[in-house]
Design a protein around this nucleic acid. Structure first.
Lengths: 163, 163
DNA sequence: ACAAATCCCGAGTGTTTTAGTAAGATATCC
DNA sequence: GGATATCTTACTAAAACACTCGGGATTTGT
C-alpha cells in the first residue's frame, strides 16, 4: 500500500514544478539536485507524466518542463495512477469472469473492491497539486482536524518484524 | 499504491471471518478453499493479524480462527498496516534527520507527506470490517459524503485501547 | 556552424519483494 | 493414538524496484 519511489519522486517533481510555475521551464537536473533525487531515474518517471499531458516539455538548451495544466486541475490521484498503476486495485482472484462472484457464496472480493477502492481514490482525487502548495491552514478543509489529538495510539499493531 | 496480494488476501480472510462470526472457529483450509487462495500463504499472512490481536486462534482439530474484536472495532487501515506496512509512507529522501527539510528551500517531501498521507489513512481507518459486511445502502454515508461538510468522521465510540 | 544544454529512449543490472511451496513441530479433539 | 489444525521456518522462481548507462534528437547561445 505504500507509495514506491516512483510515486514519491514523481509527486515531488510535480510539486516542485508547481512551485515554480510561471517562471519558465525547469530542467530535470535542477529538480533532481534540489530534491536530492536521481536525474536519470526522474527522466523515466516524468515521461509518463508527459504522455498524460500533466507536464509539457521544452527541448534544447534552457529547456525543461512546465505544468501542462493549472495546478488546481492536476489531481494527486492522476499522478499516482500514471506512476504506480491503479489505486488500491482489487481484482477477482478466481478468474476474469465477471460472473464468478455470483457463483461463489462466500466470494468477498467484489464487496471489498467496491467499498474500499472508491473512497481511497476519492480522497486522492480530491487533492490537487494546488492544495499541496497552498499554505497549511487552507488545507484544513481536507484534514479537518484543528483539534486533532495526534496521540499515537499505543497499539503497535504494525511491527511483526522485530521482536 | 496498489494493494498486493498480502493486503487483498488478508482483507478477504478477515471479511470471511466476519461473515461467520459467532459460529465457531473457521479453519484456514475452509477460507482458502472458498476464496480460492493458497492455504499455506494465508497461514503466513494471518500470523501478523493474530499477533496484533485482530484474530484469535484455536489450535487443534476443529480449531481455526475467530475475530479478536467486534467487526466494528477492526479498521481496514489496521489490517492493511499490519499486512503491508505503513500506508502511503513518505519518508524524507535526504536522510533520517528530521531537520533536513529545514535546510532545503525546495524540499517538498514533508509537505506532501503531511497533506496526503493523513487523509488516505483517515479514509481507511474510517472503514471497519463491519462496514464491509453491511448491505450496500448503508455504505452510502461513506461514499457520497462530499456534500456534507458537517458530517465529519467523528470518533464513533471506538475504544482502540484494547487490553 | 558549432558546442552546450536538455529532452528522449531503450537496454542492462543488482537488490528487494512478492507470492508462494514445503516440511516439520506443536496442540487439541474424538 | 490418529486426524485435524495451528505454528514456524526455510527455500525459491519470478517479478518489481531503483536505479545506471549510452546514445540520439532538438534547441539555444556564440
Amino acid at each position: 500500500m505504500k507509495l514506491s519511489t516512483k510515486g514519491r519522486y514523481g509527486l515531488t517533481a510535480m510539486v516542485d514544478l508547481a512551485l515554480n510555475a510561471g517562471e519558465g521551464p525547469v530542467s530535470l537536473r535542477t529538480i533532481a539536485e534540489r530534491q536530492g533525487l536521481s536525474e536519470n531515474y526522474l527522466e523515466q518517471l516524468i515521461s509518463g507524466l508527459r504522455n498524460s499531458g500533466m507536464v509539457n516539455s521544452i527541448r534544447g538548451a534552457q529547456g525543461g518542463y512546465v505544468l501542462g495544466k493549472k495546478a488546481e486541475d492536476i489531481r494527486v490521484g492522476d499522478i499516482i495512477r500514471v506512476l504506480e498503476g491503479p489505486i488500491a486495485a482489487f481484482e477477482c482472484e478466481a478468474n476474469d469472469d465477471p460472473e464468478c462472484c455470483e457463483k461463489l457464496d462466500y466470494c468477498v472480493t467484489r464487496t471489498i473492491r467496491e467499498k474500499v477502492r472508491d473512497p481511497v481514490e476519492d480522497v486522492l482525487d480530491s487533492i490537487t497539486l494546488a492544495d499541496l502548495v497552498k499554505d497549511p491552514q487552507t488545507m484544513d478543509s481536507l484534514t479537518d482536524d484543528e483539534d486533532k489529538p495526534e496521540n499515537k495510539p499505543e497499539d503497535k499493531a504494525d511491527d511483526q518484524k522485530e521482536a
